[in-house]
Computed example of a mutant assay.
Amino acid sequence: MNLHSSTSGSGYRGRLAPSPTGYLHIGHARTFATAWRRARDAGGVLVMRMEDLDRDRSRAEYAEAALADLRWMGMDWDEGPDVGGASGPYAQSERGDLYLEVWKKLREGGFIYPCRCSRKDLAAAVSAPHEGAGRGQDPDDEPVYPGTCRPLRKGEGEFEISSDTGEEPRGMNWRFRVPDGDVVEFDDGNLGQQRFVAGVDFGDFLVWRRDGVPSYQLACVADDATMRITEVVRGADLLKSTARQKLLNRALGFTDPKWFHCELSTDEQGRRLAKRHDALSIRELRRRGMSAAAVLSAEWPSAL
Rank of each mutant, 00 (worst) to 15 (best):
A243G: 08
R150I: 03
V232Y: 06
A29Y: 12
V184T: 01
V183H: 03
T230H: 09
R276Y: 01
W72P: 04
A29W: 10
M50A: 11
G203L: 04
R57H: 06
C220M: 10
L70H: 03
R15Q: 13
G181I: 04
G270A: 12
W174K: 08
L100N: 03
H277K: 05
M75K: 03
F186G: 04
G109K: 12
G84R: 11
G74F: 04
S58I: 07
Y145M: 05
T7I: 13
V295A: 10
I112V: 15
L296S: 06
E185D: 11
G171D: 13
M75R: 03
G11A: 10
Q193P: 14
A274F: 01
G109S: 08
E299I: 11
T34C: 14
C262G: 06
A124F: 03
F205I: 02
D54H: 02
G84D: 09
L70Y: 12
G166T: 07
D97F: 00
P214S: 14
A33Y: 10
N249E: 15
S302L: 12
M227V: 03
R38W: 14
G147W: 02
F32R: 08
P146D: 00
G147A: 01
D141Q: 07
D180F: 02
I161L: 14
H4A: 14
K258N: 15
A125I: 00
L239W: 05
F260W: 13
P151Q: 08
D278P: 00
A86K: 13
L252P: 03
Q245I: 10
H25E: 09
G132C: 15
Q193I: 08
P81F: 14
K104L: 10
T148L: 07
A65G: 08
Y113I: 04
C149W: 06
D141C: 13
V126T: 02
E64I: 02
G11M: 06
M1P: 02
R228W: 09
G85C: 06
R288P: 01
T255N: 15
M172C: 12
R234M: 09
